[in-house]
Design a protein around this nucleic acid. Structure first.
Lengths: 253, 253
DNA sequence: CATAAACCTTGACGCTGCGTAAAGGTCAAT
DNA sequence: ATTGACCTTTACGCAGCGTCAAGGTTTATG
């Protein structure tokens, strides 16, 4: 039996365009092209198409399918298992999203302002990624991989509740910063309370505290404009003052 | 505070290109464009970006986000709920895929030729479409659209189908059991997925689900040798492990 | 046997959400 | 004055096709 594009299309439920595209990318070539340039498919090709559609249903990329079906035993089982893992990961991610969306809906219906909610999702990832990207290598060298990974894990594992506590503390830090900066003295009572608050805030993500690390971070705040921008957003020269306060607090100055 | 593209990009973790694109599609316009054509963002825009990133994380399309954030109270809650439903559907689909992939892996490892598997997916669709293609026009003319559609519906709803789905799931349960038991921990991720699969399998025959009933059944598996034998046939101590996993899953332990 | 209907072909643009040059201005610092 | 780090616009590329457009082929019908 010989089939034209439309015949195959109807049999398999795909469009003619799809078949032409599969031909184009070399995923499914017709058995023959006749004198008028028509694509002619036979049983073998139809079977292969079924295979393709099966894997496509499984949401594999056409590229991956091509490899799997590449003649002579590409390791199908391994490929499938890898794909299985991808699907599992996808579902795990979906579960997280579902939880977040649900919480968001709840908070909306409860009339609670959305802000914290909205910031929550991007926050963790952002935090980790930025940390990794910018300081990852540096910090890993200084403190070892474990410390970093633990810190990331801890950050990811924060419960919503903890997170809220944390943002509350963050606000407190800002407030205190506003107050303390008025003294214009990083050794003042207010400034030292600020450093203390800042330490508490850090402890939500750090496993252990060291004065060195705390002081180091404070330096970073000024060196890195993102942090500078963050603190300066609330208080002019805020990052600088916070650094100085922490340096005094940690006995570095 | 005024921010250029790069500043905003670093603060938020997106690329400059992204910001320009968001400007281009009107999702996030800068507060101002200065004399040299530079985009200038302020706090308000940064906040909006946070919102955008939140929804983007939730896998909403930028188009949908634009609507949600369109000034003057687009119904956010409704939109969120609709989106929630989409995510739910997506997960349901993923679950099916997972089961199928797992079955495929199992059959491969069992040395059973893949053919039937591969053809299975397209089968239903093919059947209906062939019918349509061949006789559709004719029959529709003779008996009217409703008859045809009903017939198709019935074909789709075949008990045979259901049965095959169910055995498919059953295979998935066995496979997952094999995997999960390696963790030796009924609370492990794999074990909880097992319990979840088992629940799904049950739902083919149960009208309603309750944790109590589920847990009760799991106990029975171990108490009744027929069941024990069934699961142990595939996996040593399988029944026991399944019970434990289900007990954790249902919160009984 | 002419003609219309139904099929076939290639070519090319469009969709999403950007990444990634390319070619060229602007700004701060040396 | 030059360098380097920014900024700009323009435009192609990715996946997987849908959707015209312009034209050739086959088949059914009058």
């Amino acid at each position: 039996m010989e089939y034209t594009v439309q015949k195959v299309a109807q049999m398999s439920g795909v469009s003619g365009r799809t078949l032409r595209y599969y031909d184009q990318i070399g995923l499914l070539k017709p058995a023959e092209v006749n004198a008028s340039g028509y694509r002619i498919y036979r049983q073998k090709e139809v079977d292969r198409l079924q295979q393709i559609l099966f894997y496509r249903e499984m949401e594999m990329s056409l590229e991956a399918i091509k490899e799997i079906l590449s003649d002579r035993e590409f390791d199908e089982t391994t490929a499938l298992k890898e794909h299985y893992q991808k699907l599992i990961d996808k579902r795990a991610r979906l579960d997280t999203l579902l939880a977040t969306v649900q919480k968001t809906i709840a908070s909306k219906e409860g009339g609670i302002p959305m802000q914290d909610q909205a910031k929550f999702a991007g926050f963790k990832k952002k935090m980790i990624q930025e940390n990794e990207a910018k300081y990852g290598k540096e910090i890993r060298e200084k403190y070892g991989d474990e410390t970093v990974d633990q810190s990331n894990a801890k950050l990811m594992g924060l419960t919503q509740e903890k997170y809220e506590e944390m943002t509350e503390l963050e606000q407190a830090v800002i407030s205190q910063l506003k107050e303390a900066i008025k003294t214009d003295d990083p050794a003042s009572e207010a400034a030292q309370q600020l450093a203390e608050l800042h330490k508490k805030w850090l402890m939500y993500t750090w496993n252990s505290y060291s004065k060195e690390a705390h002081a180091g971070l404070a330096e970073m705040y000024v060196a890195d404009e993102r942090f500078t921008a963050y603190y300066d957003k609330y208080v002019e020269s805020g990052a600088e003052f916070l650094r100085d306060a922490v340096l005094v607090y940690t006995g570095r100055r």
